[in-house]
């Protein structure tokens, strides 16, 4: 799929995809609802993290799936910012190893889906 991590209209283009179609996106995408429940976990992210989508779907993103992002740098921003489109360097802990990633946080007030896009650094 011709979709880039840095695309200016990334959120709109992800919104236009069905949840199964997220699998074709060439970087990690986690889609979650307004209650932070994971509704989409694409193949790229699943392969990289070694976690099957069934294990994370409907789980709380910031408590169960990516607890390392449950702070003001990431989780709080989805709450605080009505038009969120922000990139930042971060460190995940896949298999307990520090894993540097680039995150793009996407959310729009009123939209049912929010996204965390993930690219290795």
């Amino acid at each position: 799929m011709d979709l880039e991590f840095d695309a200016p209209d990334l959120r709109e283009r992800l919104d236009a995809l069905s949840l199964p179609d997220l699998d074709a996106v060439p970087f990690g995408v986690i889609a979650f609802d307004l209650d932070n429940r994971v509704v989409g976990y694409n193949r790229y992210e699943s392969d990289r993290a070694g976690i099957a989508p069934e294990r994370v779907l409907q789980r709380d993103l910031f408590i169960d799936v990516a607890p390392c992002t449950n702070n003001y740098l990431v989780a709080q921003r989805y709450t605080d910012e009505p038009h969120l489109d922000e990139q930042l360097d971060y460190v995940f802990t896949f298999r307990m190893s520090p894993t540097p990633v680039r995150l793009r946080l996407l959310g729009e007030a009123g939209a049912p889906r929010r996204y965390m896009a993930i690219r290795p650094r």
Binding site: A66, P67, C68, N70, N71, Y72, V74, Y90, V91, T93
Partner: peptide
């Protein structure tokens, strides 16, 4: 993850 969360800033 808790360490990554707390040390992230």
């Amino acid at each position: 993850p808790a360490a990554a969360r707390l040390l992230a800033p």
